[in-house]
Amino acid sequence: MSDRVGGWLDERTGWRLVWDGVFLRQVPKVNWAYTLGSATLIVVVNQIITGILLTIYYVPSVQDAYATVDFISHDLTAGWLIRGMHHWGASAMVLLVGLHMVRVIYHGAYKFPREITWLSGVGLLVLTLAFGFTGYLLPWDQKAYWATVVGTRMLEVTPLIGDWALRVARGGDDLSAVTLSRFYGIHVWVLPAILLLLVGLHLYLVVRNGISAPPKKGE
C-alpha cells in the first residue's frame, strides 16, 4: 500500500531521488560532535515555529507590546511554554552555533571543498546575533528598552557616521515606537528571509560536499 502510494507520488514528484540523495547517502564515520549542526537546525525550527505562534498575539506597538507579551505569558494556554522556548531557544542558538563553529575549526572542516559552506556559516552567526539583538527589544520591558538604548548608542562611536548610524538604527534620535516597529519588522520578516536563504544554501552544500571526516593524525 505504502509502496503504491510512494510509487504514485514518485512518478509525479521524483521524491525518491531527493530521499536517496539526502538521507540514504553514505557519510564517513562521525562522532557525537557532528550532531551540533543538526542540533542548531532543530533550534532554528523551534524558533520559527514558536516565533510564528508568538506573532499570532503579539502587537508591535508601544501601547500593546508589553500587554500582549504579558497576555501570552500569563493568560493563554501554554503561552508561557511557547515564549519560554523562544526565549531559551535564542540562547541555545547562540551557544550551539558557537560550539558548532568550534567543532568545524577543530576538524579543519572549513577547508577545500567546503569554503562556501563555512562562509555561509559565518553569515548565519551574524544573523543569529542580529536576531538576538532585535528580538530582545520586543517584550518592551525595562530590561529590553534600556539594553537597546545602550546597544544602539554603541553605534554612535563609529567615526564619521556615528550620528547617522544611531539614527538609522533607532529610526530617529530616540528609542521610540518607530524603533520597536522597525525591530519587529526586521526580526520577523527581513532576518528570517535571509536566514532561510542561508540555511538552504548551507544545507545544500553540506549534502553536496558531504560531511567532512574527522582528520586523523598527520592529515
Binding site: 505569558s73 511554554l81 522556548m85 525595562q142
Partner: peptide, 19 residues
Amino acid sequence: ALVVLSAVIGAELGDQANP
C-alpha cells in the same frame, strides 16, 4: 532542555519600559 528551562526558569518579563 528548552522545555525544562521554560518550565523551571521561564522567560522573565520585567516592568513595562519606562523611558
